[in-house]
C-alpha cells in the first residue's frame, strides 16, 4: 500500500499526552454515542434493504428480479448512465482544461455556474425540462408537429440525469489540474508535441485517478437519481421506468419483496462505489487532490 498517502490522512496524534486528549471513559462514551448514531442512521437502513429483499427466501428474490418490467428498468438505467456519464466526462475534461490551464476574466463566475445543479432541487431539475418540452412548454408545439418525443421518453430522462450529474467530473478535475500547473504541458509542447498529444500522453495520465473518481460518483448518481427523472419520465412501465422509479412503483403496490429486491441491486451499486472510492483515496489520495466530499 502507498504509505505516504495514508500518512497524509493520519494526523500526528498517536503520541497525544493526557493533557491534550479526553480521559478514557469520556473517549469511550463519545465513541459509543457516535457508533450508536451511525448504526441507527446508516447501518440499519442498509441492512433492512437486504433483509426485506430476502424476507420470502432466495427464490422469491431471484423471481422478482427476473420480472420483465424489472429487467427493462435495469436496461434503461444502464442505458441512461451509458449516455449521461460520457457526456459529462467530455464536458468535465473540457471545462477543466479551459479553467485550470488558462487565466481569463469571469473564471470564478464560470466555476460557480458549473456547481449550480448541486444547489437546485432535483424536482426543479426535472421541471425545467417539462417547461421547455412539455405540451404547454416552449418547444411543445414544434416538437409535436415534428413528431419528436423528448418528455416521457428516453431523451428527457437522459437530459434530466445529465443536469443532475453535471458538476461531478468537472469539480473533481478542476482543482486537481490547477494544483498540477502547466509545467508538464509546457515541457511537452516545447519538445514538439502537438496539443492533442500533450493532452493524451501528458495531461490525461496525470489526472486519470481523479477522473476515475469523478466518473465513479457521476455514475452512482446517474443510476440512482430519482426526483428529476421522476418528473420527466411519465412512469410508463417497461418503457420509461428506471430502477429507482421501479422501486417506487413496486413499493406503492405493496410488493415489498419486489421493491427491496430492486433496491438491493442499487444498494449493492452504492457499496461497490464506496469500496472503489475508498480504495482510490487510499492508494492515490495525493493524485485525486484534497477534494473529498460529494
Amino acid at each position: 500500500m502507498a504509505d505516504p498517502v495514508i500518512k497524509s490522512y493520519e494526523p500526528h496524534h498517536e503520541s497525544r499526552s493526557a493533557a491534550v486528549t479526553e480521559s478514557r471513559p469520556v473517549q469511550l462514551l463519545l465513541m459509543a454515542v457516535a457508533f450508536a448514531f451511525l448504526a441507527i442512521f446508516l447501518l440499519l437502513p442498509l441492512i433492512i434493504v437486504f433483509h426485506e429483499a430476502l424476507a420470502k427466501g432466495f427464490g422469491a428474490y431471484t423471481e422478482s428480479l427476473s420480472n420483465p418490467d424489472t429487467r427493462s428498468a435495469i436496461r434503461l438505467t444502464l442505458l441512461v448512465a451509458a449516455i449521461a456519464v460520457p457526456l459529462n466526462v467530455v464536458f468535465g475534461i473540457s471545462a477543466a482544461w479551459a479553467i485550470a490551464k488558462f487565466e481569463f476574466k469571469g473564471k470564478a463566475f464560470l466555476t460557480t455556474l458549473i456547481d449550480l445543479p448541486f444547489s437546485v432541487s432535483p424536482v426543479i431539475s426535472g421541471l425545467v425540462y417539462v417547461l421547455l418540452f412539455g405540451a404547454q412548454g416552449l418547444f411543445g408545439e414544434w416538437l409535436r408537429a415534428h413528431g419528436i418525443q423528448i418528455l416521457f421518453a428516453v431523451p428527457g430522462i437522459v437530459l434530466a440525469t445529465v443536469f443532475v450529474t453535471f458538476p461531478f467530473v468537472a469539480r473533481e478535475l478542476i482543482p486537481l489540474m490547477q494544483e498540477q500547473g502547466n509545467g508538464d504541458e509546457e515541457a511537452a509542447l516545447s519538445l514538439g508535441a502537438n496539443g492533442w498529444q500533450t493532452f493524451w500522453y501528458v495531461t490525461l495520465p496525470n489526472v486519470k485517478w481523479g477522473l476515475l473518481y469523478g466518473v465513479l460518483l457521476c455514475n452512482a448518481r446517474s443510476m440512482g437519481e430519482f426526483g428529476a427523472v421522476s418528473v420527466v419520465s411519465g412512469h410508463i412501465r417497461g418503457l420509461t421506468n428506471t430502477m429507482p422509479l421501479h422501486v417506487e412503483i413496486l413499493y406503492n403496490e405493496y410488493n415489498a419483496v419486489g421493491a427491496f429486491a430492486v433496491a438491493s441491486l442499487l444498494a449493492g451499486l452504492a457499496l461497490v462505489t464506496l469500496v472503489l472510492k475508498t480504495l482510490l483515496e487510499m492508494r492515490y489520495g495525493a493524485e485525486i487532490a484534497a477534494t473529498r466530499g460529494h
Partner: peptide, 29 residues
C-alpha cells in the same frame, strides 16, 4: 479524527453512504 479503533477506515467510508445510496432506496428503507 482523534481516536484509534479497529475498523476506523470502514466507519469512515460508511459516512459517505448517503451520497452513494439512491434516495428512493433510503426512503423505503
Amino acid at each position: 479524527v482523534r481516536y484509534r479503533f479497529p475498523g476506523r477506515r470502514v466507519v469512515d467510508a460508511m459516512v459517505d453512504l448517503p451520497f452513494a445510496l439512491p434516495t428512493a432506496v433510503a426512503g423505503i428503507a
